[in-house]
Amino acid sequence: MNESYIRKLIRLVEESEIESLEVSSWGRKVRITQRLNAGSNGHSNSPAVMHSPAPAPSAPAPQTPAPAPTPAATAEPPAKPAEETPSDNLVPITSPMVGTFYASPAPDADPYVSVNEKISIGQVVCIVEAMKLMNEIESEVSGRIVKVMAENSKPVEFGQTLFLVDPKG
């Protein structure tokens, strides 16, 4: 789903009388909405685009939708089960593989990060081990650790949320 494809969709919506068009492809979803004013054919309105990497098992990116043209447009159905959907302003750090979660480099060592700690991009936050391969998980966001979602030395699934980070924290 590249830019020119999305442009095409926008033109399609602009030229039509439809209020909202949603297309999903390979786990990515785009929704284009426009306000159809009474007495006007709507051509003068520019559509709003919402682009979300929706039901992919990996991290849902923080959704910062464009200002919604209509109240209805904000009612995005949740793409994942409720317990895995963090609240709007929190960003999850997810597991890139099936394995065992370790919060610290050694059983008697301090954890890599703890709640309320500030983290930066690229900082190691934990280890996920699979078949004795030690995968140091680096954060892809900066912010503050709000919650540790996985339990030490317990199995984690691919895409499972390990930490919640407040990027404004």
């Binding site: 990996s58 078949m131 391969l133």
Partner: peptide, 23 residues
């Protein structure tokens, strides 16, 4: 399995694999 090598039932070598990756 998966990462110890034995000779005569005893450990003769150990392996520590460390990965650096993004998604």
């Amino acid at each position: 399995w998966p990462n110890d090598v034995w000779i005569g039932g005893k450990k003769a070598a150990g392996i520590l694999t460390e990965l650096s990756a993004d998604k």
